[in-house]
Design a protein around this nucleic acid. Structure first.
Ligand SMILES: NC(=O)c1ccc[n+]([C@@H]2O[C@H](COP(=O)([O-])OP(=O)(O)OC[C@H]3O[C@@H](n4cnc5c(N)ncnc54)[C@H](O)[C@@H]3O)[C@@H](O)[C@H]2O)c1
Ligand SMILES: NC(=O)c1ccc[n+]([C@@H]2O[C@H](COP(=O)([O-])OP(=O)(O)OC[C@H]3O[C@@H](n4cnc5c(N)ncnc54)[C@H](O)[C@@H]3O)[C@@H](O)[C@H]2O)c1
Lengths: 230, 230
DNA sequence: AGGCACTCGTGCACACGTTCACAAAGCCAG
DNA sequence: CTGGCTTTGTGAACGTGTGCACGAGTGCCT
């Protein structure tokens, strides 16, 4: 059945850049800019102009040759393609350091991802209020997911509890997971998982630092020439 | 420091997976496992076995055919390649929700990235103690960077202040930046920047959710008749 | 010693992503 | 209407990443 997920597939690399374009276009729109060229958008987004055009071409031919792209219309098209025409409530599992920071961060709701709930096993945390949301016991997870129609879950538990948290999220009906714990989650194939691992990021930076130091161990500050982006 | 330090470059994709292997190997080592095959490591890391072997081959030929890899030795080699043979102190700019969560997170120090300092412009935050580190005024940033030999800076300010924070980090002598603010930083070419943008991650998940619903939800009433003539 | 089972290391083909380069398309001035 | 200028959209070349398939070592068992 429906062997063809018929819609033209947008390359992963492009999907990961569309949110960046979207944010920039939103800012430009707020500043009253009505039209923008791929060149300018590329500059603001720190990418190549041809890449911008190719990325946008996957949405359709929404530019005007010789002129550029109409900002508001492009915002609309990207939002539509990303499924941002309506809110996606999220549920957070784990109300520790990170869960609290996430709950207390207004940027989520603003961008269409309101926190529908936050749950924890720790009784001492249940009942406290974070960012306007009351922490509830993890047993209430299924109920939250169902009544609030939550599709996206966030795992913010220690690594040792992350797989269990993911299992509970899946059982409750969540179909996408954003995982902050430093482990590889095992989930059914149909579940989309994205991982954010700070330790990995730092270790990648470490690799480059180590490599930079290659010849002589001590890095010399200063002396760097500013990149002249206009 | 032989000229041979001119080690062949390791592909980015591999560098980003080495930390994952490292964590798994550490766990295995702690459990008393002495030897591991590429197949098993691939399973634990959620990747393809051939990929594991190819990745590890960039470090040199440290496996034993017919047997596998010696866990502790591999840990040593990966740590060496990633530059994890010594600590890399980091400095955090911005002691808000996120900065506090980061400072209060022990996992950093454990993995070789101790928090050398955390700074903020907000006088009311200066002096408070987070995760054992006292928040200092941003004017003290250069001093922290120099006395603690910090190479890595973390930007955890609002987007509007992130470029300024990055500029100050660079001026203070930092050469790698981990950016949590949702903007594209402009820095000298020599500076390595990595970005962690939660909004982007959520929007990517949104894309897949929207796509999943594709068949049953009619998002576009009548508009844009783009037939699938390819 | 020889054979066998196992697993690494890697050549190769293919998929995916990036960038260049240019014709086509649109706008505007005169 | 024409010519000149700008910018898009995309074919094609190139680079990077992935995964199969298999030769080459290694250890064990008989
Ligand atoms: N805090 C950070 O800055 C940071 C940075 C990088 C990664 N992380 C990762 O994020 C995760 C959370 O970090 P943290 O600092 O918030 O940890 P934390 O220990 O402060 O909080 C974890 C919370 O999860 C709860 N919990 C434990 N088991 C649970 C379960 N089975 N179900 C539901 N809740 C459960 C605990 O009660 C606790 O409140 C960890 O995996 C950590 O590695 C955190
Ligand atoms: N908190 C989260 O869960 C979360 C999630 C995703 C992204 N982010 C991003 O992380 C960044 C920080 O988020 P937050 O929730 O911690 O914000 P926040 O407002 O709680 O904290 C920001 C801190 O930065 C300080 N600051 C402002 N300007 C500064 C400057 N020029 N120099 C030094 N410090 C300065 C402020 O005084 C404040 O303490 C934001 O860019 C946000 O978009 C946060």
């Amino acid at each position: 059945m429906a062997p063809d997920r018929n819609r033209r597939r947008i390359p992963d690399a492009t999907v990961s850049r569309l949110p960046v374009y979207l944010r920039i276009l939103g800012e430009q729109s707020a500043e009253g800019v009505e039209s923008i060229s791929s060149e300018r958008l590329a500059e603001l987004g720190g990418v190549n102009a041809a890449k911008v055009r190719k990325d946008l071409s996957y949405l359709g031919s929404y530019g005007t040759r010789g002129v550029g792209y109409e900002v508001d219309y492009l915002v609309y098209q990207i939002r539509r393609e990303l499924g941002l025409t309506h809110d996606w409530p999220v549920v957070i599992v784990g109300a520790g350091n990170l869960g609290q920071a996430l709950a207390g961060y207004g940027g989520f709701g603003e961008r269409g991802f309101p926190v529908a709930g936050i749950v924890d096993v720790d009784e001492s945390k249940v009942g406290t209020v974070l960012g306007g949301v009351r922490v509830r016991h993890i047993d209430e997870l299924p109920q939250i997911v169902q009544t609030k129609r939550v599709n996206i879950g966030v795992v913010a538990t220690p690594g040792s509890a992350a797989q269990e948290a993911a299992d509970l999220l899946v059982k409750a009906g969540v179909t996408s997971i954003l995982n902050f714990a430093p482990i590889v989650l095992s989930v059914p194939r149909a579940i989309e998982v994205r991982k954010v691992d700070l330790a990995v990021e730092l270790q990648i930076l470490s690799y480059h630092e180590q490599r930079r130091a290659g010849g002589s161990i001590h890095a010399v500050p200063g002396g760097t020439s500013r990149s002249a982006t206009a």
